[in-house]
Nucleic acid binder design. Structure first.
Lengths: 121, 121
DNA sequence: TCCTTAGTTCAGGAATATAGAACTAATGGA
DNA sequence: TCCATTAGTTCTATATTCCTGAACTAAGGA
């Protein structure tokens, strides 16, 4: 039974097939200020990042359990791909697949978000 | 006190100023299958529609209390404008204002949604 | 073997969503 | 004027989801 416990914990990360991604789930994943900021940063970064890069975001410190849930929601919505590399997760956006499925949807959302963030008076 | 009760009930509908509309709230309002469908239909319709037009949507009958909440969320997110006309509400999209604030964001979301709905196999 | 690090899962309380029931307000007769 | 109907809101209770501290797992050293 320790075998079973290990299997449950270690189950490989679930990523939806591109066909199973829905507009509603994508919008829900982006509707949280923390998640959209993380995604925008991942998309901007030339290289992939791990979860702990975001322990502080928007000037607030997030508990890592909260962060873990945010990454799970983005993963299950199809926004990001996570790979285990040793002890950490390497996260990348699924931007090419999303573009194939939804066209300009994701880039348009992110650029509207970034435009909104700019005038921080 | 009946005066007060009447005032509370009759308080004019609150619509956010265009500057107070946020991308996150817009995305949240669209992340519900019922609401995005209603908005898409409002946007397509040449004329405004009242709430009860949507008592059945997506082949299911919705309680009107639920529908009332959905309209309130869209209104408070800045997606629609509601006018009292006698006993009913006349709802219209705020598409011109939204375009001025967010560019192609809303049309892009709706067209991605409509494209997703088409292949109903 | 023990320690550290990265992340997940669990458990609780908080916040939000759903929907039936009661209600308000406007309108249209009788 | 009074009653019935219609459109929508509010109330209330339940259900679901979200947040987060605590306990945990697994990988990688020292």
């Amino acid at each position: 039974m320790s075998r079973r416990a290990i299997n449950i914990f270690m189950r490989s990360l679930q990523h939806p097939a591109i066909a199973d991604i829905t507009v509603e789930n994508v919008l829900h994943a982006f509707s949280d200020p923390v998640r959209i900021q993380i995604y925008a940063d991942l998309a901007k970064a030339e290289c992939a990042k791990n979860c702990s890069s975001y322990l502080t975001i928007k000037k607030q410190t997030l508990p890592k359990s909260t962060l873990s849930q945010h990454f799970r929601i983005m993963r299950e919505a199809g926004l990001i791909h996570s790979d285990r590399k040793g002890v950490e997760l390497v996260n990348t956006t699924r931007c090419a697949e999303l573009k194939a499925r939804f066209g300009a949807l994701v880039p348009t959302i992110i650029s509207a978000y970034l435009a909104q963030q700019k005038p921080r008076k």
